[in-house]
Design a protein around this nucleic acid. Structure first.
Length: 587
RNA sequence: GCGGGCAUAGCUCAGCUGGAUAGAGCAACGGUUUUCUAAACCGUGGGUCGGGGGUUCAAGUCCCUCUGCCCGUACCA
């Protein structure tokens, strides 16, 4: 059974070999294997129709010939797969109950599933650059998606056999410090007062400084000059800078603790401050960069827009910016961390920046410098009920900490209502997992390239595609095992026989779909595809749970249903873990 | 102007990259519990997939065009 891990890939091979035996033109023919509508089978091949068209033959006849060739091939598991022809020339593949049963028996735990995904040729060293907030501000809702999506991508890439390095590339060297240092001097700001509110005081100072720079061009110039001073290493400036960063890092860590997110490296832009000169020199020497309006920029003549829209890698006043440090970072990650690939998880508004960065890096690489490849994973905006970027009533951004705490509080009142008999310790723990999980799941279950509307009632609902619904399914399964005093991981289900009822079969078929759902999720790094699958699986389980009682007398029926429960639990918990959610024993 | 994204049921969203009768949740209506967690399950109604044209055996999906919304576009990140 080992080699049947990806059933779709195996059917694809079978079809291709059959086509070869028929002497068809493999240059033209594509098997095009897709999961099928359950009414027709488990998989379907759509390849005959286009081939018939191109070679001007009758599709039904071709399909019939191909079906015979498939059935006649030596490694066709005739007792496991039934084929049929339908419609204009689709070939359907229906798995037998005993095939499903054997597959699920073999791929029955996390270890074997993980190693099966690992066997593919993905052994890259991949840096995932995510979260990456700017210092001097508390994290707000706008920082949620990068953190949540980034963490999930790390887990997904790791599960599928990539060597993952998590890097939080903090924005600690940019324009905000010019404005802040200028404001500290201008408003004679003192770093005193209640330490727990100091970061808020600094935010307020930044607001005032920014306002000043907007209204007064001299102030703006002074602020820019202060940034240049900082980047030159002025001691007084560095002291202010350091103080602000310390406060910021502490506040960030509180959020990461809440979200259960960790990093291998937390290297701010400032870490690369002494490496930007290498970038300037190399890109200038390679004639990739040029001076324009006093700044060092890269144009991309082959591009209709970036031929005129510059990628500014050093500002006219000599200061470095985002682009400078990103280029230095690419070099560092290749030379010191030996990375093959960098995955950036940011807002969609930075698409131009990353397109320019990518092109620049490619040219730099072509000039003889070894660098990692770049993949930009971008996402849309979280909207309020007014369909505009979510804000508090007074128009300020919602603090991430407040959002997460509110979610836990709301979850707690639901737990208290639904399950008042639990101890306070249990209630609080369950509320934490549900509350944080709900916010996370709400974000991941949306197609990442879309904007989405944030609604409390929707994300914490126990119906629909939500964290509570999925967690509830796992809690019900655990409850069954608890009642029988069994451990789902350590039960052998020796008496289990193959599936009989509609609900059993439907659940078994949904379970084997995990493999395709994962490949689909990984191919474009879109976690919502995994969410969709898990939601369908949980739904199929609930239908099964309602239709077929598990704890029955007949040991054959009982064992096979228990086994389906255990397998569902395994897949749901692997999936939820890959999304960053924690487990719950009871709800 | 140029570029990116979006437009699918009253609302919020899916739709496996061109396949068979477009699906969920909410909202509305009806049903299921002496049975393992009813935070559940089953059912009914609801659609010109923004408009128009085209390619194809096959279009929500690809191409063209129009309309509307969001975003980016020289020294922010």
């Amino acid at each position: 059974m080992k080699e049947w891990f990806s059933i779709a890939q195996n059917i694809n091979l079978l079809v291709k070999n059959a086509v070869r035996s028929l002497d068809w033109d493999l240059e033209i023919f594509q098997a095009d294997i897709k999961p099928a509508d359950p009414r027709f089978g488990d998989f379907q091949s759509n390849g005959v129709l286009p081939y018939a068209k191109k070679t001007n033959q009758n599709p039904r006849t071709l399909a019939s010939n191909l079906e015979k060739a498939i059935q006649g091939s030596t490694n066709f598991p005739a007792e496991g797969i039934k084929t049929s022809i339908a419609g204009p020339g689709f070939i359907n593949f229906k798995l037998s109950h005993s095939f499903l049963f054997q597959w699920l028996n073999y791929f029955s735990n996390e270890k074997i599933l993980r190693s099966s995904f690992n066997s593919s040729d993905t052994n890259n060293k991949t840096i995932v650059d995510f979260s990456s907030p700017n210092t001097a501000k508390q994290m707000h809702v706008g920082h949620l998606r990068s953190a949540v999506i980034g963490e999930s991508l790390c887990r997904l890439l790791d599960f599928s056999g990539n060597q993952v390095i998590r890097d939080n590339h903090i924005g600690d060297w940019g324009t905000q410090f010019g404005i802040l240092i200028h404001a500290v001097k201008h408003f004679e700001f003192e770093f005193t007062g209640d330490p727990s509110h100091q970061l808020e005081d600094i935010e307020e100072l930044y607001r005032k400084g920014n306002q000043l720079a907007k209204e007064d061009l001299t102030a703006l110039d002074q602020a820019r000059a202060e940034l240049v001073e900082l980047q030159k290493g002025n001691e007084e400036h560095l002291t202010i800078w350091k103080k602000i960063n310390e406060l910021s890092y502490k506040a960030f860590q509180e959020i990461y603790d809440l979200l259960n997110i960790r990093f291998d490296f937390v290297l701010g832009e400032s870490f690369y401050r002494n490496q930007v000169n290498t970038v300037y020199k190399q890109l200038t020497d390679a004639k990739i960069a040029e001076i324009s309006e006093g700044a060092l920029v890269v144009f991309h003549p082959e591009h209709p827009r970036f031929n005129k829209q510059p990628f500014i890698i050093r500002k006219a006043d000599g200061a470095s910016n985002y682009a400078s440090t990103d280029l230095a970072t690419a070099l560092y990650r290749k030379n010191e961390l030996k990375a093959d690939k960098m995955v950036y998880v940011t807002d969609g508004r930075q698409q131009d920046h990353f397109e320019q960065l990518k092109r620049t890096v490619e040219k730099w690489q072509a000039s003889g410098t070894d660098l990692p490849s770049i993949q930009h994973i971008w996402f849309g905006t979280i909207l309020g009920s007014d369909n505009k970027a979510i804000k508090t009533r007074d128009g300020s951004p919602i603090k991430l900490k407040d959002l997460l705490e509110e979610s836990v509080t709301r979850a707690l009142s639901a737990v208290e209502e639904k399950n008042p008999n639990l101890s306070d310790v249990e209630k609080n723990e369950i509320a934490r997992v549900i509350g944080i999980g709900a916010v996370r799941y709400a974000d991941l279950s949306q197609n990442r390239t879309s904007d989405y509307v944030f609604e409390w009632d929707k994300i914490l609902s126990f119906d629909g595609n939500t964290a509570p619904y999925l967690l509830y399914a796992t809690a019900r399964i655990k409850s069954i095992f608890r009642k029988l005093k069994l451990n789902p991981d350590q039960t052998n289900f020796e008496q289990a026989t193959t599936y009989e009822t509609d609900a059993e079969i439907a659940l078994a078929r949904k379970l084997i779909g995990f493999v395709d759902a994962m490949y689909q999720t990984l191919s474009d790094l879109r976690p919502h595809l995994l969410c969709n699958y898990l939601y369908q699986l949980a739904g199929q389980f609930s239908s099964f749970y309602n239709a077929d009682k598990v704890n029955v007398k007949d040991p054959a029926i009982k064992d096979r249903r228990l086994q389906l429960c255990a397998q569902t639990l395994t897949i749901l918990e692997i999936g939820l873990h890959l999304l960053g959610l924690e487990k719950v024993e009871k709800m």
